[in-house]
Design a binder for these strands. Structure first.
Length: 471
RNA sequence: GCUCCCUUCGUCUAGCGGUCCAGGACGCUGCCCUCUCAAGGCAGAAACACGAGUUCGAUUCUCGUAGGGAGCGCCA
């Protein structure tokens, strides 16, 4: 039997990291088995669902590269089907109309809670013969009241719950619209899903869903309930933890490979390995090896992985993502070094593409003024001779490559009998306006010959101006 | 309140009765390297929630306690 998995988000917001992880797990299980991965949009709640959210989810899936074989399938397109199944259950006596008012149900719930009982529908309308006038009834599923439901969860192990704990849940509202626990079951049956991977907040729903499967005479899929993701502080992940939406990670400068790798390691491991390409994940991941406890999201480790991928992925591939950030920062890649060159030298000094853009402005745009502290320390009269000397040598350089540039600076330092720092630091400030940049040869290389010479002249003028002011 | 579930370094995890005075990774600290910042190399601090059992022997099995989570909707 071919493995069929699905990811079934409800479009009530963006794709968050927890959802992305269950999507990834479902995707990996399907791909590993040469099976089918389905995307289904659970939009039965017309109030909360939105087209923007659907877009956001689709965008998130696309950015992560989690391609699906079937879908997106929208539940709102399947209302006729749910109604049909509901009618069948009604006809077979496996479901019934319930005329109880919401008020009565609420009062019942309160009363039961007060008595220390678990709130459950009391079945008043179960065998009702009359049809009260003027009331549009809901449809309730007739849950077995004997025995218990057991299933082997692929991550949680054996789970057993007594039918006494369950009650007759509403499967259709007065207007006929179906409810979640019913639609998932109908859909997973119709779509022949063989493995249901979802958040463990659904674990308590599973027994009642299993009862519906049985009433429908369908085979059960395997279930795998994965723990949720917590924020850095161990509390449930929410907006106040910063980024929770997948696309926010893109905006913040993370590579999809890094996020995916981080997510797969959250609650799962394979020996001492930390880095996994998508192919390796497919080969090594097994939902049965996922941990049972919730894990906290740690941005520092994500940062480490992100830098790893910025450095190890082909520069051309990273450049495609960097391009997007350059544009968003208002920088034109044409006005400076090739992005692949930039990545080669900058990737090891930043955690995100966004930071890379920030520290690289100076290679694409002229700066307004020298950093005050850096200028005060390095653009002093003593730097004048070294700067003139290096400028002369650089002006004659025909081959503007790091090796030649490194030689030029070293030889200049040797001739002047000074430390590298005596020449590199003033030069660094001249070129970048700050005292921090890549190694001096790489900095020169990225700035380019013409621009380097212009900036050195500018620094010399600055030094003279300061000297004049002082005297 | 009731039901179900979870508990190894700060964090992610390895461990599936003796190989563990508990291994790896991120982070942290120190040293080295060094033209700045990084990166890199080396070293280090850092955990089995607690209490009873079972056993010759428990991180590993059982039961309690404590702490935490989820569910109990005409939301998904």
């Amino acid at each position: 039997m071919t493995v069929r998995t699905r990811f079934a988000p409800s479009p009530t917001g963006f794709l968050h990291v927890g959802g992305a992880r269950t999507a990834l797990f479902s995707y990996l299980q399907a791909r590993a088995a040469g099976g089918v991965f389905i995307l289904r949009i659970e939009d039965t709640d017309l109030e909360r669902s939105s087209a923007e959210s659907v877009e956001a989810i689709l965008d998130g899936m696309a950015w992560l590269g989690l391609d699906y074989d079937e879908g997106p399938i929208f539940q709102t397109q399947r209302f006729d089907r749910y109604a049909e199944v509901t009618q069948n259950l009604l006809r077979e006596g496996k479901a019934y109309h319930c005329y109880c008012s919401k008020e009565r149900i609420e009062a019942l719930r309160e009363e039961q809670m007060k008595q220390g009982l678990k709130p459950r529908y009391d079945g008043l309308c179960r065998d009702r013969a009359d049809v009260p006038a003027g009331i549009r009834p809901v449809v309730r599923f007739r849950n077995p009241d004997q025995g218990n439901v057991e299933f082997d969860d692929r991550v949680r192990g054996r789970i057993s719950i007594s039918n006494n704990e369950l009650d007759d849940l509403v499967i259709a509202r007065p207007d006929g619209s179906p409810t979640y626990n019913f639609t998932v079951v109908v859909d997973d049956i119709d779509m022949a899903v063989t493995l249901v991977i979802r958040g463990d907040d659904h674990i308590n729903n599973t027994p009642r869903q299993i009862n519906i499967y049985r009433a429908l005479g369908a085979n059960l899929p395997d279930f795998a309930h994965v723990p949720m993701i917590l924020g850095d502080d161990g509390a449930r992940l929410s907006k106040r933890h910063g980024a929770v939406g997948v696309m926010q990670y893109r905006d913040d400068g993370y590579l999809p490979q890094a996020l995916l790798n981080y997510l797969v390691r959250l609650g799962w491991s394979s020996g001492d390995e930390e880095v996994f390409s998508l192919q390796e994940m497919i080969a090594k991941f097994d939902i049965a090896d996922v941990n049972r406890k919730a894990s906290a999201f740690n941005t520092e480790k994500l940062d480490w992985l992100n830098q790893h991928y910025m450095r190890s992925l082909p520069a051309a591939e990273v450049a495609q993502h960097l391009q997007w950030h350059m544009q968003h920062a208002g920088l034109d890649p044409e006005h400076g070094p090739a992005l692949t060159d930039l990545i080669e030298v900058q990737a090891e000094r930043v955690k995100t593409l966004r930071e890379m853009v920030e520290i690289s402005r100076v290679f694409y745009q002229d700066f307004e003024s020298f950093d005050a502290g850096a200028a005060k320390k390095h653009l002093r009269p003593v730097a004048e001779q070294p700067l003139r000397a290096i400028a002369d040598r650089l002006a004659d350089l025909s081959d503007w490559v790091p090796e030649q540039l490194d030689q030029a600076v070293r030889i200049t330092a040797e001739h002047m009998e000074v430390n590298m720092g005596k020449i590199a630091q003033p030069l660094r400030v001249a070129l970048t306006a700050t005292a921090v940049s890549p190694s001096i040869d790489k900095t020169l290389w990225l700035v380019g010959q013409q621009r380097s010479l212009q900036r050195i002249s500018r620094a010399l003028a600055f030094i003279e101006m300061r000297a004049a002011e002082a005297s």
